[in-house]
Design a protein around this nucleic acid. Structure first.
Lengths: 147, 147
DNA sequence: GCCGATCGTACGCATATGTAGATGATTGGT
DNA sequence: ACCAATCATCTACATATGCGTACGATCGGC
């Protein structure tokens, strides 16, 4: 049996997450993006354009709440909704060129923020920390969300 | 400049935290404790009994919301509120014997849950991971909260 | 062609959040 | 003794959440 000699995992993770999110918020605000908008945009960044239902599932965002995010992103010209020619019930959500540029800027700024946060760590410790984080998070189903 | 080669920190931390909290919930439920009640009880566990205002600050819990938590914990006999003899505006919140027993059970179950979650890791990787987590969380002001 | 299922959308509901008064008891300074 | 400040408490408000429901458009099977 292992004796408790450190704060609980939940506490540590919560505090750290809180700090990271607090540092991300002003970065995204500079682009006019609330956190959820960025999550959605980011989910669109990598691959091909999904239907809204798939987007909602991928981001963990509630299906009905996603709509407002897409409305906003669309009004900024960062994504485009178009009817699916194959099944006109669906609407295909695609990231635009401007969306990709914005996304790239955000990611660069966030990466730099993370460097700032983790920069003090010993290089190998940081390496291990990040890989363990990726490993643990990787085991937990395919959820992508921030919530 | 460091190129992004892994999911963002915020995403990883959010997912992991979500999982840990999801595993904690049923443990606390077995004791009849919502998450926030446990946070409050846990904050009371270590040291001396604080005033409610200090408790709110220490847990990050809203001052007005804390009241309901204390009401509940008191109704379960896990904490006791008594007027501060030195300043009768204050109410001193103290954990009871039963509260300490409950807290101890929760902590043991949570530690075991954490072992289960981290058990697959290489021992030295786990060591590094936990110490980095403690290190990073330790830099962020004295907040104790789970929120 | 018809009927059930699916998708995007709009709406309401119940819940949790933080903030902001208002109140009554109590303190401390003057 | 008086008055401002503090503490616990209560209430109300505005916001964000997920869930459920309803509706029109559309698809697929039969």
């Amino acid at each position: 049996m292992r004796c408790v000699d450190r704060p609980e995992l939940g506490v540590l993770l919560s505090r750290l997450r809180r700090e990271v999110l607090a540092r991300e918020t002003p970065i995204l605000e500079r682009e006019g993006l609330p956190m959820w908008d960025y999550v959605v945009l980011s989910a669109l960044g990598g691959g091909q354009a999904p239907t809204q239902a798939r987007l909602a599932a991928a981001t963990g965002r509630d299906k009905t709440r996603l709509i407002a995010n897409l409305d906003h992103l669309e009004s900024l010209g960062l994504v485009a909704r178009s009817p699916d020619p194959a099944d006109r019930r669906n609407r295909i959500v695609a990231i635009t060129r401007a969306g990709e540029r914005t996304l790239h800027r955000c990611r660069a700024a966030i990466a730099s923020m993370e460097d700032d946060l983790l920069g003090d760590l010993d290089a190998s410790a940081r390496e291990t920390f990040e890989s363990v984080l990726v490993d643990l998070a990787g085991r937990l189903g395919p959820t992508e969300a921030l919530r």
